[in-house]
Design a protein around this nucleic acid. Structure first.
Length: 698
DNA sequence: ACAAGCAGTTTTTTT
DNA sequence: AACTGCTTGT
């Protein structure tokens, strides 16, 4: 590294030129982080200690002290939080902050690969596989290998994808990974390894990249081309990383590479809130940070501005029971407040009714609906509650769970666009061919093979010369080699795709409309049971697509930043009241609410049944509870049903979460539900019934 | 040989 | 709701 001489700022000039009064708006610890100079810093920030605020002020401070905004990189966990922080910084200072480079690791890497990928042999038009697409690719390859397996239980495609991705993320052999996490599949280790190799080869040959590739290929690019690394890192004058406890190995390496020229790096995180182990995140990254950057200054934010003392006491108590001890004790000045409660409801229905009722009460007492949240472990834990909320006419948005872009019909439409973008995208071809009546897996495969040949011909004719004058596309049938049962239908499909391919000036909206016109009849045939609902989603999607200037941007954006709207979406804000938030605990990270309801806090759900027996996994479930609890500012209600219904076991007695049973009453009061007398209850229920018929759209 | 439809099983969390 | 395995029909 070039030796640097630091010129100290003139303190008298500082007070004149800075427009923000940092001293009065931040506490001493925050101020230190915000005004930190050059070098490496680790900010250990407990829940609710103003972590986001600190980052926002840090961005503004850097810009205000003359750092060019486009040389500041802010890496966050979701694009949503990057967007939010940058706009908050802009509001604080001015529009200059909009030019800060911000986003997720994946989107940042995608930009780099688009810019420099050509130099290491990646085509410019590669398509991105989300994890479901990746599983589909693996499934295509699996069907070939499986013939030799015969009759035995081979892992399903999602499991295979999880294993292959996990192996990549942790950089360990398949054997070790399967031994630890999937001992039931030990006999298939060799086949899984073969499959992983096949998968990599397939992706390379067909211009595909999965999420892991975006990170690892960027690292590969940096390793192979030092000038690229220097050039990229040279433009990263200041690097800021949020949620550092949830980075994996590859991401930590990328951070190191980005800081390798200027060395100005600030990472912010909280080891107690690490909840992405399943995705390869390693909270030890945060412990290792000071070793990797020997001159690291460690800064701590410990004063909590969010929650009442009662909520913090509970949170502190919970985290001390983790097997891996964390040295952290949050404190606050907020003394007042109602203590957290643990409520046992008779069953799931009454739990939903209780939560809805409390939400209405809180709203009556002046709390905005949008300042309340219902949190749960898994997306489907809220199904029953969603019905009840609809019945009560309470508007809500749901984060986590099924995404719009993950719905089958949206993926169908996207697959058509992907094929036009990257004609070698075999999974997308497979998907759209299977939609045609009369074409099954085998025929789709034959057609795909023929398409691959065509694509090769196109490539070679382009390579040799443009002598034949006519641009060839991979979307025409020259030979009558397919059976008449479906050849006409394939011809219609190819005609449609060719019209998009040969028309580079066509707007994204027109492209989407063209695909939709083609897809509509297929949708009706395949989803004859519920196509009206799906048609609605497609219209929503078409509106959304209008804001994109080109097809590649639309596809990349949907792959990297899935629209978080469930199919069970309410009418887009018909009334102006901001809706209640339903969210998985994972998706609620970084958010805060006046009142939080944590539902289904029972054994088998939180902790998840998958985690029991694995100490590290159980610890992570505990941290998940910690995250949920610390989202609450004033009120916290934790509930679980005493009886749970399950299709296989029927009704069974549910146990409260093991993390909650031995907590002193002083920290967590327990409560139970009593059914109100019939006469009083009846009119209220009648009224709700009326609401139901008005609001129920699903 | 292949597609399509039916019944029973299985569902974590996300870039 | 989606996936898997099985049966039936072309």
């Amino acid at each position: 590294m070039v030796r640097q001489f630091v010129l100290k700022r003139d303190p008298s000039a500082e007070s004149i030129s800075l427009s923000i009064d940092y001293r009065s708006e931040l506490n001493a610890q925050q101020l230190r982080a915000v005004t930190f100079g050059r070098g490496a810093a680790l900010v250990v920030a407990g829940a609710g200690t103003g972590k986001t605020r600190t980052l926002v002020y840090r961005v503004a401070y850097l810009v205000e002290t003359g750092v060019p905004p486009e040389e500041i990189v802010l890496l966050t966990f979701t694009r949503r939080s990057a967007r939010e922080m940058i706009s908050r910084a802009s509001a604080l200072l001015d529009g200059r902050c909009q030019h800060v480079m911000g986003g997720t690791f994946h989107s940042f890497c995608l930009n780099i690969l688009h810019k420099y990928g050509m130099s290491i042999g990646f085509p410019g038009n590669f398509t991105i596989l989300d994890s479901a697409d990746a599983a589909d690719v693996i499934d295509l390859l699996r069907s070939e290998i499986r013939i030799q397996v015969n009759k035995k239980r081979f892992p399903r495609k999602r499991t295979l994808q999880a294993i292959i991705s996990g192996v990549r993320n942790q950089g360990i052999p398949v054997l070790e990974y399967v031994e630890n996490r999937y001992p039931q599949f030990l006999e298939y280790v060799e086949m899984i390894s073969d499959l992983a190799a096949e998968y990599d080869r397939y992706k390379f040959n067909h211009g595909l990249m999965d999420y892991d590739d975006l990170l690892s290929q960027t690292l590969f690019l940096f390793e192979e081309h030092d000038n690229v690394r220097k050039s990229v890192a040279g433009r990263c004058r200041y690097v800021l990383v949020d949620e550092y406890q949830d980075t994996n190995r590859a991401q930590a390496s990328i951070v190191r590479a980005l800081a390798s020229v200027n060395g100005n790096l600030m990472v912010v995180g909280d080891d107690a809130q690490s909840i992405y182990r399943f995705r390869g995140a390693d909270f030890k990254n945060i412990m290792r940070f000071p070793e990797q950057f020997p001159d690291t200054v460690v800064l701590k934010l410990e004063q909590n501005y969010r929650s009442t003392q009662g909520i913090l006491d509970l949170a502190n108590h919970i985290i001390t029971t983790a097997r891996q001890k964390f040295e952290k004790h949050l404190f606050t000045d907020l003394k007042t407040g109602e203590n957290p409660v643990l409520i046992r409801a008779p069953d799931t229905r009454s739990e939903s009714r209780f939560v809805s009722q409390m939400i209405l009460e809180r709203r009556e007492s002046g709390v905005e609906l949008s300042d309340m949240a219902v949190l749960f472990r898994s997306g489907f834990n809220s199904y029953d509650l969603e019905i009840e909320l609809n019945r009560c006419g309470i508007p809500f948005v749901k984060y986590g769970g099924l995404k719009l872009s993950e719905a089958a019909h949206i993926k169908d439409v996207l697959a058509h666009l992907k094929v036009v973008e990257n004609p070698r995208d075999g999974v997308a071809w497979n998907r759209i061919l299977l939609l045609i009546e009369g074409i099954g897996p085998q025929t789709a495969r034959n057609i795909r093979e023929w398409i691959d040949e065509q694509a090769d011909n196109v490539a070679s004719s382009q390579a040799s010369s443009q002598a034949d004058g006519q641009a060839r596309t991979p979307f025409s049938i020259d030979e009558p080699r397919f059976s008449p049962g479906y050849v006409e239908k394939v011809r219609v499909l190819l005609d449609m795709l060719r019209s998009l391919h040969t028309n580079p000036n066509m707007s994204v909206t027109d492209q989407v409309e063209t695909v939709l016109a083609y897809y509509e009849p297929l949708l009706h045939r395949i989803y004859y049971e519920d196509y009206p609902k799906r048609t609605q989603d497609l219209e929503h999607f078409a509106t959304l697509a209008e804001s994109f200037t080109d097809r590649a941007a639309l596809l990349a954006s949907l792959a990297l930043d899935p629209i978080e709207l469930t199919a069970i979406d309410i009418e887009p804000m018909k009334d102006d009241e901001p809706p209640l938030v339903l969210s998985t605990i994972h998706s609620a990270k970084g958010l805060e609410f006046n009142s939080v309801f944590l539902i289904q806090a029972m054994e088998g759900v939180l902790p998840s049944a998958y985690s029991v027996g694995d100490h590290d996994a159980e610890d992570e479930e505990l941290r998940l509870l910690y995250v949920a609890v610390t989202r609450a500012a004033r009120r916290l209600y934790i509930s679980y049903p005493g009886v749970k219904y399950n299709r296989s076991a029927g009704q069974y007695f549910a146990k409260p979460s093991r993390f909650l049973v031995n907590i002193p009453e002083k920290l967590l009061e327990s409560g139970s539900l009593v059914e109100q007398e019939q006469q009083l209850l009846q009119p209220a229920r009648d009224e709700l019934e009326v609401h139901r018929s008005e609001t129920e759209t699903t």
